[in-house]
């Protein structure tokens, strides 16, 4: 059971994530979009969307710090566990609150604005449910374990950097550390499983737009020139060379 949950499921989800994106990019570039509904409604969006997106960027940054950077590195920098804990707590709750409030506004908007609701695909609904669950569980973990010491030892907060993070990194080292995760509190386990589901769903939802964040805009020239033959304007795929010889 432990192997199923903390080895097989994560790997299946990861592979789905990677292959799914490759497949989607290869076969559905036209569908690769933010699917913005701003045209229908922009008053609530102007409030909710930046809240949610900036919040979730903070959340992602927090996860990278918490999961990717080993505890020994911050120790080496002389950052005490308490200091780290409080920075993570404050930052996490701040961006978490932004995210949750933003998401609440966006879901309210989606449900109550007629055109926006009718433009919502079934896939969107599934994605919203999973994403919402993961976010709420994550918030719960942060608050419950940090403030109330839930799942920790001797009333201390659960130190995920000695549990979940080890497991997370071990997955990418291809030596999954099952016990590190199996010993985590239930909230963290559910959050991790939810995240796995989210990653598996990811390539098949509008979430793909995360990977087209236009950072290249900062460096490219304003006006793009393209020649006709460098990149045909239509979608005709290039022919395989051995199929036909051009004279």
């Amino acid at each position: 059971m432990k192997t199923l949950l903390w080895v097989i499921v994560p790997y299946v989800c990861l592979v789905t994530f990677v292959l799914g994106h490759w497949w989607r990019y290869r076969f559905d570039k036209f569908g690769w979009t933010t699917r913005s509904s701003q045209l229908y409604e922009s008053r609530l969006l102007r409030l909710g969307s930046p809240l949610f997106h900036f919040g979730i960027l903070g959340v992602v940054a927090g996860h990278i710090i918490g999961l990717v950077i080993p505890e020994s590195w911050t120790d080496a920098l002389g950052i005490s566990e308490t200091a780290y804990h409080w920075v993570a707590l404050v930052g996490g709750i701040a961006s978490g609150v932004l995210t949750v409030v933003g998401m609440a506004i966006l879901i309210y908007r989606r449900r109550t604005t007629g055109p926006v609701f009718s433009a919502t695909t079934p896939m969107d609904k599934v994605m919203y449910a999973v994403l919402g669950t993961v976010i709420v569980l994550g918030m719960w973990n942060t608050i419950a374990s940090s403030l109330f010491g839930l799942g920790g030892v001797d009333g201390d907060a659960y130190n995920y950097r000695e549990g979940v993070s080890l497991w997370f990194r071990s997955i990418f080292e291809l030596r999954p550390d099952v016990d590190a995760m199996a010993g985590a509190p239930l909230g963290f386990q559910l959050h991790a499983l939810g995240a796995c589901a989210l990653f598996a769903l990811w390539p098949f939802t509008r979430l793909v737009h995360v990977f087209s964040a236009p950072v290249g805009y900062l460096t490219r020239p304003y006006i793009v020139y393209r020649t006709r033959d460098a990149s045909p304007a239509g979608s005709r795929p290039p022919r395989r060379g051995w199929e036909k010889v051009d004279v």
Binding site: K29, F30, V224, Y225, R226
Partner: peptide, 22 residues
């Protein structure tokens, strides 16, 4: 996204529908 481009042959401005991210 850099999806809108000007064709260098005839200057027609087009949106690359595969690159536009909305």
């Amino acid at each position: 996204s850099g999806a809108i481009y000007k064709r260098s042959e005839d200057g027609i401005v087009l949106v690359d529908q595969d690159r536009c991210r909305g």
